[in-house]
Design a protein around this nucleic acid. Structure first.
Lengths: 248, 248
DNA sequence: GCACTAACTTGATCTATATCATTTTAGTGC
DNA sequence: GCACTAAAATGATATAGATCAAGTTAGTGC
């Protein structure tokens, strides 16, 4: 049954020098709000962004800080979360390459309402809001596209609310595993490895439960052969069964 | 102690003919995405919207229907909700005059992901997405404003997620009462009357609990003199105490 | 290979809230 | 004023999941 000795997760970007201009351009082109642009326009836009590299666990910004930038994930994963006065964390989203975050407050000043950390090593592009505003004025299609993405985010947030209020913990976890595997899954011999380090605590904070409850559910899933899991990693072995759990 | 015999809620617009052009214009000017426009531009834009009047309880659109319109509340209140396969309702928001809803999918087709009903008699302006797109192209400031409103909606939805996962029912209800009183409150001799018909079931669906639990909490609040309440109406008598409950 | 530690698991309670079952009452319409 | 009804309140019980308290182990670094 193949006892593992090391985490199956890729240990990428140890030297932090993979964010070539080409990679940046191609990733920025992926972001759907730049989807409609011609290559030359895109090249022009990329120049206005600056790239920063973060190591796993680095904070990108804190809840409460003044907000001046819009950011885009080029590589890696970013965790977006709020913490409460009582010290609990609530994970709002885990972003994959191509997603934007930060502020969209183009007029007046703004303050971040969530904190963000690099969930894995990652490369982030950022642009000042003034500059972004200029881009919006130059390329109206960008505005329309970002408006749609923003509406989409709202919808998925509403879906989360629905789940929190109507679904038991087991279903919520099954759901998150499915979502994460769609965002970060890599097909391996035996099932889909979620290419993203995340602990039971992270998982619990994503679905609004405790580490212990998350752990129990994951243990059951593993016993049933639905997943295979270790410290900070999960592979899905039986997606069908996971879907069944969600639906009934 | 003044036993009430009738609901204190206003019974407005019984004949449905109060949506004058002036009212429409002034309300549309209130919507912050038209805030920057000159009066003449606004007049031009208003013409492209058409007004519809709904009676309390009327459905405006259903979850799953193809979505072709963007709408704005001119008068009254609109309940935005999702229902689940198991027959539960989740209230996502209660909109007051000046709020927009419907679709923002300007390219391609879209399907409503929530249902909406008139929570009170109300007047709604709607515009086809094509027309709206033209407005966006003509008046770029509208796009920027709506982008910000959309970001704001996302944030309040995230706040709701935080509350659902970290706060007990009593605090969540206290919170909603405060929000509703800000949106629909009218100052009366004794406290703030929430000018909006809503039942214990509505309340429960807003905070993700059951009618019974909502009822118990409301009974306590009334016993403590924090609120006064009857069928489908609530008045807040001691906002300070409500705030205390939320905070500790 | 071996020791070390944070991550994870497991078990035993406890508790907030759901659920089920009635009873009570506010507000309407006659 | 009185009867009627849907809404709300209340009580008794059940339960999912939180909390508290020890263990276990996966994966790392030597």
């Amino acid at each position: 049954m193949g006892k593992r000795k090391t985490t199956p997760l890729k240990d990428y970007a140890p030297d932090g020098h993979h964010c070539s201009l080409e990679l940046k351009t191609s990733k920025l082109g992926m972001v759907s709000f730049f989807l409609d642009l011609k290559q030359e326009d895109l090249d022009e836009i990329v120049k206005r962004f600056s790239a920063t590299h973060y190591r796993e666990g680095d904070e990108i910004y804190y809840q409460g800080e003044p907000a001046h930038y819009l950011r885009v994930v080029v590589e890696g994963a970013v965790k977006l979360f709020r913490y409460t006065d009582e010290g609990k964390d609530v994970v709002l989203d885990i972003l994959n390459p191509g997603s934007y975050f930060g502020s969209l407050k183009l007029l007046g000043s703004d303050v971040y309402t969530e904190s963000t950390v690099a969930q894995s090593d990652c490369c982030i592009l950022s642009i000042g809001l003034k500059d972004f505003r200029e881009i919006l004025q130059e390329y109206p299609s960008v505005g329309i596209a970002i408006l749609e993405m923003s509406a989409e985010k709202l919808r998925s947030s509403q879906e989360q609310i629905k789940q929190l209020t109507t679904q038991p913990v087991e279903k919520r976890i099954a759901n998150i595993l499915l979502t994460l595997s769609e965002k970060f899954g890599e097909n391996k011999e035996e099932g889909t490895l979620i290419q993203l380090p995340f602990s039971r605590k992270d998982l619990a904070d994503m679905v609004g439960t405790t580490t212990e409850s998350a752990s129990r559910v994951m243990s059951n899933f593993q016993k049933e052969g639905i997943i295979e899991t270790g410290r900070q990693w999960v592979a899905i072995k039986d997606i069908k069964r996971l879907r069944t759990i969600i639906e009934y």
